[in-house]
Every structure is written in structure tokens, then in C-alpha cells.
Amino acid sequence: MNITSGTEEEVTMDEIGTITDFIQDEAGHGLYLYSAMETLGKSRDQSLQELIDGKAKYSSIFNYPTTSWADIGAIGWLVDGAAIVNQVALQRTSYGPYARAMVKICKEESFHQRQGFEIMMTLANGTKAQKQMAQEALNKIWWPALMMFGPSDKESVHSQKSMAWKIKRQSNDELRQEFVDMTVPQAELLGLTIPDPDLKFNKKTGHYDFGPINWDEFYAVIHGHGPCNKERLEARRKAQEEGEWVKEAALAHAKKQRNLNAA
């Protein structure tokens, strides 16, 4: 879940609306997917508890800090962009409730991606300071976005099984390549430089070759050592803990009402 805080700095009145809608959609995506898990017999509370306990994994990208307005743009453009590449493939996943949730999610993610790109476009065409802000965000988000597709096919622990069960329809490396091919021309259009000196188009393969990914960083982050892992989980734990009395009260009230109606 891409939920950091509601107190991101805001920029224009127009953006306040779209960005809040964006974060709200992401909470919705969490909800749809927890529902899909519930059809498999795991309650949302259990899922959330496992998240807080560090047992459940979530996308490594959310453990990086969001510090500027351009980060919001780059996240929409690249992170949601990467998510779409992943999730479009998952619309054909073998598990129905998961596939159906993905259809709705993809539609909303594509709003976010376009919104993110538009933010980057405005910044890239803005003042020198704005363009620099955009470039710094791209520098920061690019590699973590590539890592979002997970370890390379040779290393991935779950891939084989997920592919065999047709939960995953395309391999991590295939999807990553698709993302790079799609994104490089977009960066060129923005006039921004992708922070990879090895990046170049390979005429033979028809794809962009790119430099090595820092997998040590990737594993460190998924094992809890990213810049924000602790903060993120602490925010979840706090929300859960502080919401308990509210949930309990709502249940108690509903029960009283039922008894009243029955009497």
C-alpha cells in the first residue's frame, strides 16, 4: 500500500484534489486485494497483523522516502507505471477474485500514471529549479522501480511455482524489460536523463539494454533495512492499535441494535 501520510506537501488546489484521490484509490486497492485473500479464508485482520509483524511482504518501493513534489510525480509515472505492467499481466491470473480486483486496480493505476507523467512534464518544462527537482526524483526512483519486478528469473524463489500455477503469466525479467522499453522514450520526451550509463538501444534484440541492478540493496530493503521500513510498519501498527476501540464500539452498537430489533 502506498500510504505514507496525509500530510504530503500540497501544491495547487487542483493537485490537492487529485493527489488525495490518488492516495484514496491506493487504500481501495488494499481493500480489494485483502478481499481477494478473504475468499481464500484469511481475514483482513490476520493479513494486517502479518504485515505489522513483518511476516507479510510488501513492495520494496514503499520503503523509500518521498521528499519532494517531483517524487510524487515520479512515483505516479514510474511506480504506478511498473505496477501496471505487472498488473496488466495479472488480469489474466488463474485466480478469479485476484484477476477481477486487478481489472479495477489497473484502471485506477492508469489515472495515476498519467497524472504522474503530467506532473513530471510540468516540472520538466518549468523553471530550472523545477526541472532539477524532476531529475532528482527520476534519479531516486528509477532503480527502485526496476527492482519492483522482483529478483531476476534465475534467483526468484516463488516465480517457478507462480508461473506453473498460472498466477504469474510473465516472468520478472520479461516484465522488467517491457517496462524499460516503454519508459525510455517517455523520459526522452520529458528531456530527463535516466541514471544508467549502460542504457542503450540494442538493434539486434529490439530492446533497451540496461546496467546491472544492485540486488544487495534490494535484499537489504526487503529484509527491513530500507530507509523507511520501520516507519512504514510503525504507521500501520499505530493505525491498527488506535482503531481497535472504534471497531469494537461499532460492533457493540450494532449488536445492541440487533437485540433491540429482535425484542
Binding site: 496525509g6 500530510t7 483482513r44 493505525a239 471497531k247
Partner: peptide, 11 residues
């Protein structure tokens, strides 16, 4: 809007 992501239940 400060509640976004911090409410007692997603709904």
C-alpha cells in the same frame, strides 16, 4: 485528509 491511510478500517 490527514486521516488518509491511518483510519480504523480501510472503508
Amino acid at each position: 485528509s490527514e486521516w488518509c491511510g491511518h483510519g480504523p478500517e480501510l472503508e
